[in-house]
């Protein structure tokens, strides 16, 4: 009788673990895969994961430069994670540099973290204001994002 109790409790012991990496996108993140080469600029209001080569500027909300990835151009975003190589200026309020990263260029940040082992060449400058990236212009998704709001504001002040 009691020996049956063991059999009954067998089912819920295995936690459901999803080991399968779904290649389909979740509708949020854009992925530049390892075999891909982009010669040109990337502009997004969402997240970009770069695993391949990008020769051009990247503007987005979140940019992740994966291990083995290479970016030749400037990166500006709200949050930038760097684990790969970058040749150019990085501008973001939050920047994380992993130990596998190779950064060759200036870093403009508010919060910066560099893991031991990261290769860095360039100046680090802290931005005081929280206007590192005009994310409002990104969400409107105009490739040639003109800094019209700032300009208009300036003109209004000078005119008065």
């Amino acid at each position: 009788m009691f020996s049956q109790s063991g059999k009954g409790s067998e089912a819920p012991t295995q936690p459901v673990r999803d080991t399968r990496v779904t290649p389909r996108s979740n509708g949020e993140t854009s992925v530049i895969s390892a075999d891909l080469k982009v010669i040109g600029d990337l502009v997004s209001g969402g997240d970009i994961q770069i695993k391949g080569l990008v020769e051009g500027d990247v503007k987005s909300r979140t940019v992740t430069i994966g291990e083995g990835a290479q970016v030749k151009g400037s990166v500006s975003a709200d949050t930038v994670h760097i684990a790969g190589a970058i040749n150019g200026q990085v501008e973001a309020p939050t920047i994380t540099i992993a130990k596998t990263a190779k950064v060759n260029g200036d870093i403009i940040h508010q919060t910066l973290s560099i893991e031991a082992g990261a290769q860095m060449e360039g100046h680090c400058r802290r931005l005081e204001t929280r206007k590192a990236v005009d994310t409002a212009s990104l969400s409107s998704l105009k490739p040639a994002a003109n800094p019209a709001p700032a300009e208009a504001g300036k003109k209004a002040v000078s005119g008065s």
Binding site: S25, S30, D35, L36, G40, D41, G52, P143
Partner: peptide, 23 residues
């Protein structure tokens, strides 16, 4: 099934330039 070599240009992304790959 490729997984690696799978590139996604999402709805909010604009690429001004060329994309070259094998996946």
């Amino acid at each position: 099934a490729v997984g690696e070599g799978y590139t996604v240009i999402n709805q909010d992304l604009t690429v001004i330039g060329d994309l070259t790959g094998d996946g």
